[in-house]
């Protein structure tokens, strides 16, 4: 849900800052003294959505916790580009253990804090989609089930980018990766069941689950803020486009993150204790083609002849999300915004 101010203010709550609104309604990112949990000099590719997402989330969490934060990070791009010896880009207490154990390590951190009576310091575990939906899922599910006091953040770039763009359980249907080549009768990733981790998190009935996007900063920061107000297991799934893996221009990172939402392919919602609370309505609906076309991983859908059947199936996925989460505000009434 987007934070709205009552009076109209030019860019409203869509731009990072807004000189026309009260400072407390501006984002953490607009603050000259923001924490910069992930600082300059990291080795992420140009236009990295994950670098952006991590700073957005952690800065918001640091702001919410008066910087009393410990972060546990899975193996993956985020870890590799941030901490190659001898330099680290983190300005927050941070630890990397393994690829698949991030949630459990965070549980250990939280347990250590609890046992010493430190209620101020909060714990975030963060991983890419591989470290969350695939190799990290066992530990994550255990952490959910025990309701350990950890916010787990998945930065979903929809494939194993660090190892050279191989398919993960989060790779969307039809997407080309190094292990789902764009050839054969079913080019790209198969239209499988997918692994909807936000839904799985909701199924654990943990205190808080939300999806967010680097294109909707106010929404993202509000969700981090709410997550940090709560205790117990919490889950935030952030879509972070990867220019390299998606075959997109580095400048289009936020644009694609926005299109993913505006097409309905990536619904933004919040849930608590197993119930969906709200969804962020789409402002300007776009057909899935607007999102797919700028990405080379979907280029085969627009070849000669085009895979109109696949595009239609992807559109159906978007339409289903729009219906399920009422992303056009049809059930809630248009006046909700």
């Amino acid at each position: 849900m987007t934070e709205q101010t009552s009076s109209y203010c030019q860019v409203g709550s869509f731009a990072v800052g807004n000189r026309l609104v009260d400072p407390h309604l501006r984002t953490v990112q607009s603050d000259r003294l923001r924490p910069n949990a992930l600082t300059s000099g990291h080795r992420a590719c140009q236009g990295c959505g994950e670098a952006l997402g991590a700073r957005f989330v952690l800065d918001a969490a640091m702001a919410a916790t008066d910087r009393q934060l410990i972060v546990v990070n899975a193996t993956g791009c985020l870890e590799v580009f941030s901490t190659p010896y001898p330099e680290t880009a983190w300005q927050v207490a941070w630890m990397h253990s393994l690829f698949g154990n991030t949630a459990a390590v965070a549980t250990g951190v939280a347990a250590a804090l609890k046992v010493r009576g430190d209620t101020a310091t909060r714990v975030i575990a963060q991983a890419g989609d591989g470290g969350t939906v695939d190799i990290g899922f066992g530990c994550l599910s255990g952490m959910f089930e025990r309701n350990d006091d950890v916010l787990f953040v998945c930065y979903d770039n929809q494939a194993y980018m660090n190892t050279g763009v191989q398919r993960s359980a989060s790779t969307p249907a039809a997407a080309r990766t190094a292990t789902t080549e764009a050839r054969g009768r079913e080019p790209g990733n198969a239209f499988g069941q997918g692994k909807n981790l936000p839904a799985l998190a909701v199924a654990h009935e943990i205190p808080y689950v939300a999806t967010a996007s680097v294109a909707y900063l106010h929404d993202l920061e509000a969700k981090v803020g709410r997550a940090m107000e709560l205790h117990g297991a919490r889950y935030l799934h952030v879509l972070v486009p990867c220019p390299l893996g998606w075959g997109a221009a580095s400048r289009d990172t936020i644009r694609l993150a926005r299109l993913a939402c505006e097409t309905g392919l990536f619904p933004l919602f919040e849930a608590a204790h197993g119930e969906i609370l709200s969804a962020t309505p789409i402002r300007h609906r776009e057909p899935v083609e607007a999102y797919l076309r700028p990405q080379r991983r979907f280029a085969h859908l627009f070849a000669d002849p085009p895979r109109t059947d696949d595009i239609a199936r992807i559109q159906a996925i978007a339409d289903r999300n729009i219906g399920r989460f009422d992303l056009l505000g049809e059930r809630a009434g248009k006046g909700s915004r």
Partner: peptide
Amino acid sequence: APVSIGAM
């Protein structure tokens, strides 16, 4: 006193 533990 933040540090990064577990460098690459």
